[in-house]
Computed example of a mutant assay.
Amino acid sequence: MPLDEFSLIQRYFTRATPGTVLGVGDDCALIAPTPCMQLAISTDTLVEGRHFFPDIDPESLGWKSLAVNLSDLAAMGAKARWFTLCLTLPQANETWLSGFARGLFALADAHGVDLVGGDTTRGPLTISIQVMGEVAPGKALRRDAGKAGDDLWLSGPTGAAALAVQQRYGKLTLAAADSQYCAQRLDRPEPRLALGQALAGLAHAAIDISDGLLADIGHLAARSKLQARLMHATLPTPPLSADLLAQPAFLAAQLGGGDDYELAFSAPVTARAQIAVLADTLGLPLMRIGTLAAGEGVVLLDANGQPQPLPQTGFNHFS
């Protein structure tokens, strides 16, 4: 018997919600925010053919759909609590739904996040998720809070996910080991929630790298009314073959590619020792990649401190 909307929700998306007063199954969910905490709320939509390839493994798609939203909470220093899911499906394929739900809830369980509601309908495959988290008043890592003289930091290497996209479009051929690493970075990003929460009250400003390193750091700099000065030689590099790292395609991906979901953040010079401890504690290669200074835009400096030409600066949904 074909699945209808209600049996689909019951079978694949209804489960225990220990952090929620009332979850899936009613007209509204009921949540109880922690007293004296602010709510951080974000939403993102993924459209087949625009944000993911039609042949992506559904389990990976379930994981990534939630990961890209949790990354926004990480960038604000918030603790993830709840999310809603709106799922538009061309058909109710039980094998696909099972895999998608498995990936979605694997990441939700890893971070203690409850699915509390949403909607399903028929149409081109589209996934919209809204996430809700909590952050103490005055502790959110806002993009507009950077200060002149701040160090700029990055939580991990960029570029590998964009290389995977180029390979899937047939524009690049990767060796087997490189291909596996890049595909993992594209399909199973890790939202840096623990880092974001640890930076709340320590860093000044933050942003997640979703549309490209230069583009997103440019957003942070613009909102803070400052210039970002990046030292090219200090940018972290992914564990890829030396031949690939030497190609122009890697530089373009490292600076302009998206889908990395690492955190870039600014912090005072006095926080360097604490950030070094954080790197060890969380097992992340936190790298100091530049500074914020008076001015505007993004400047990329070579090893001699001279400005370099900037490549394409990032993903645009309407280009």
Rank of each mutant, 00 (worst) to 15 (best):
L39K: 06
A40L: 06
I41F: 01
S42G: 12
D44T: 11
T45P: 02
E48F: 00
H51S: 11
H51P: 00
D57Q: 13
S60P: 01
G62I: 00
K64L: 09
L66W: 06
S71C: 06
S71V: 07
L85Q: 02
C86I: 07
L89C: 13
P90Y: 13
P90A: 13
A92E: 11
N93S: 15
T95S: 15
T95Q: 15
F100C: 11
G103L: 08
G103F: 06
L104G: 07
L104I: 10
F105C: 05
L107R: 02
A108E: 01
D109I: 04
D109W: 05
V113A: 04
L115G: 02
V116A: 00
G117A: 02
G117R: 00
G118T: 00
R122V: 15
G123N: 09
P124K: 13
P124G: 05
Q130P: 02
Q130N: 03
V131N: 03
M132P: 00
G133W: 00
G133Q: 02
G133L: 05
G133N: 03
E134H: 07
P137T: 01
G138V: 11
K139I: 00
R143E: 08
R143N: 07
D144M: 10
A145I: 03
D150F: 05
D150T: 11
D151A: 14
L152G: 04
L152T: 03
L154H: 07
S155Q: 07
P157Q: 09
V165I: 15
V165Y: 05
Q166K: 15
Q167H: 14
R168C: 07
R168T: 11
R168D: 14
Y169C: 14
A176E: 15
A177R: 15
